[in-house]
Design a protein around this nucleic acid. Sequence first.
DNA 1: CATATATACATTGTTATACTATGTACTTTG
DNA 2: CAAAGTACATAGTATAACAATGTATATATG
Lengths: 112, 112
Amino acid sequence: MNEDFIHKWISQVKKGTLSFIVLNVLKGGKAYYGYDLINEIKKITEIEIAEGTLYPLMNRLKDDKLIRSEWVEQESGIPRKYYSITPEGKNTVSKMEEYWHNLNNSVLKITK
Amino acid sequence: MNEDFIHKWISQVKKGTLSFIVLNVLKGGKAYYGYDLINEIKKITEIEIAEGTLYPLMNRLKDDKLIRSEWVEQESGIPRKYYSITPEGKNTVSKMEEYWHNLNNSVLKITK
DNA sequence: CATATATACATTGTTATACTATGTACTTTG
DNA sequence: CAAAGTACATAGTATAACAATGTATATATG
């Protein structure tokens, strides 16, 4: 069946898209912790990010200095690592937005 | 610099996007050969597909029976391999379109 | 006429990233 | 007290874009 093809295709489309989405959520300046981000993104976009995808992704973004992180102790339960965007991250996300916009316009041109 | 980040990001975004674009070009029923596809897509979308990307991509699409190919001898020059879409390809591309549309709506929601 | 450029297909090796599976550890709920 | 939820993390696998390289023909240019 080509169900399988579609499934694999969606996984490929997510490559790149996820970092863009995460940076956009953080863009406003509010800090999020990982588990929260997954749920927030699922709520807004219906896109499900596996934990095994998100945590390495956040580390990559941090290595590239687009976000920073900070451990915050909780009154009860496990400490949370809060992520927030850096100035360089904001700068980068606006360039990404521009590319995405052009890409979608191209796709619209070609799909109709 | 984050020029490098953007560059790598664009390469990742193309994963999945390129197969979608190629199938959309073929969707109308007209047959294209590889070299022609690259130029056609560059002209319409400004997206540059490397030859080392396109030919393996076309083989994958063929393996998945979304397209078929046919060698056509030329009066002069190198024979061309013409690709055309299959019914299954048309079916698949419309599912892809649906997903893409939803994805872009999600992104729009999150970027504003 | 030799060389560069364009046409046309193809493969190999490298790199990046999503996902599954698995693991740790604490808390809440039935 | 077991199950489900919260919260972080890593290892291994699969996939795909791209650079580099190779083959071969045709045409333009100095």
